[in-house]
Design a binder for these strands. Sequence first.
DNA 1: CCAGTATCCTGCAGGC
DNA 2: TGCCTGCAGGATACTG
Length: 278
Amino acid sequence: MVVSTMPELPEVETVRRSLATHIEGARIIAVEGQSINMRRPLDVAMLKTQLIGRQFVGFFRRGKYLMLYTRPNGCLLMHLGMSARLLLVKPSQPVEAHSHLKLRLNDDRELRFVDPRRFGFAVWLNDGEEDHDPSLSKLGPEPLGNDLEMALPPRLKSRRASLKSLLLNQEIVAGVGNIYATEALWRAGIKPTRKGANTSISRLKNLATHIREVLLEAIDQGGTTLRDYANLQGFAGYFAVQLAAYGRQGLGCKRCGSVLKNTPIGGRATVWCTNCQR
DNA sequence: CCAGTATCCTGCAGGC
DNA sequence: TGCCTGCAGGATACTG
């Protein structure tokens, strides 16, 4: 069984829920893998020492980070980077390429961390270390709460960078990636190159609303599935959020009909409508 | 401090 | 068919 697809906040949240459904209470009886360099080094010896014998008891998400809590107390902190998947399979199932970490569970299943590009990571945190972890400690506010309209505008208004690059900055708001930044700006009718400082507070509040809504819609739909990655895993059932901008360069704007343009910002594809995003 | 660029890595699609 | 280039949902070290 596949428990994950791909990683912006909605996809990570979908993984979190799937883990909670399928492995809560499971005990880790073996850990396999090879220590390699990932975004943070994968230390299999350390993970063996810490994880074997522990039981999964809770699953949290902060931005795009996943936290798998255990008893005795501790936490496996993971990030899926650009290309990581978590698979929950029978141990006898053939091992996929780039399966860097395998956690054997006490019920004839195995959780596999598969990441071809190695931009993700999995590290052990002792009880309480979350607060000081370099990946977690600088994250901006969570975007799903009803207070985002209060929290986000001042953090954007004080900056001279483009709103598109500001939204991708996890210190400003946690969990927004290239797809949903693109979609939220389209929904809000704001041009991605507009600078934070040059945007009115009321427009920034509106942007905050659209960020929350597009993320919640995507979570509701089980995370946007791109390309046919999930299909390859036999998961044809997912359906994507109706993307209005991302990936639609050259096609007509769903609001005004103008041809959508792609203007790379910071090397990232940025699709927008030159007519109705101002 | 801030903004913008380079970099890590593999896989895949498209052009020739 | 095969080779080459560019691009991909991210985060961060570095430069100016």
